[in-house]
Amino acid sequence: MELNVVNIQGQETGRKVQLPDSVFGIEPNDHAIYLDVKQYLANNRQGTHKTKERAEIAGSTKKIKRQKGTGTARAGSIKSPVFRGGGRAFGPKPRDYRFKLNKKLKQLARKSALAYKARNNAIVVVEDFKLEAPKTKEFVSIRKNLNLDGKKTLIVFKEMDRNVYLSSRNVPKSQVSTLSGLNTYNIMNAQSLVFAESSVEEIAQHFNA
């Protein structure tokens, strides 16, 4: 797949880059994408949810009524889950939601996500740029020039530029990443992918290692 390289003013530079078919031209694997996104979301869960069971509730341990002759079910404690204010039966406990996925499956998931973006013509290649200082206004201007205003955008660099990163932090629907920091969730969540020209040269080597 061949794409034109544009500058930060949104104008074509006359250069073209070839996106490797070994990454962007594969048949996407939906199940691999599902598993990788599921793992990403699971790994971000705190897992600190907790409810009190009957042994942890503060309350009287006195038998609340006699065993027989009341016409209702027997009850031995006000802390029973059947009473209001009692303990929770089978409630959530703190746990770790993380699970393992093989490296090759995660690699396939990322390549599949990139292939979907290529199919949908949602990829832009921009020539390498840097900002002299952290300026949110300049970053917003670049987005507008590339017709990305209002879209969820993921900008990918070969190496992180601190000024660009700081300029993008307060811009809604915008995220900056390095090639090594790409994950399936962020790729699928973005409406448009913007690759810096130098990062394209490393894509095949990075995703087919």
Rank of each mutant, 00 (worst) to 15 (best):
L101A: 01
T153H: 10
K111N: 10
T51Y: 06
K130T: 14
V200A: 03
T61V: 13
V171L: 07
I26R: 00
L148R: 10
T153V: 15
N145F: 07
G14W: 00
R143K: 15
P20M: 00
P28D: 06
L179G: 00
G14Y: 03
P81E: 04
L3D: 01
D30F: 09
D161K: 07
K93P: 07
P20H: 00
K144C: 09
P94L: 03
L154T: 10
P28H: 01
G59K: 10
N189Q: 08
K65R: 15
L101R: 03
S177K: 09
L154V: 14
F157H: 05
L146F: 12
N147F: 12
V164Q: 03
D36H: 13
N170D: 11
K135A: 11
N183F: 08
L41T: 14
Q107W: 00
I187K: 05
T178N: 02
S198I: 15
R162T: 14
K137M: 13
K62E: 10
N208D: 12
K100Q: 08
N186Y: 07
S112E: 04
N189P: 10
K50M: 11
S80W: 03
Q11M: 12
D96V: 01
V164M: 03
G69P: 14
K151P: 10
V156G: 04
L41Q: 15
D36Y: 03
P92N: 02
R169H: 06
E27A: 09
N4S: 14
K68F: 14
E56K: 04
G59Y: 08
E159N: 13
G25S: 03
D36W: 00
D96Q: 01
D128T: 07
Y40G: 08
V171R: 04
N147T: 11
P134T: 07
G69H: 10
D21G: 02
A115Q: 02
L179Y: 01
L131Y: 06
G14L: 04
K100G: 00
F195R: 01
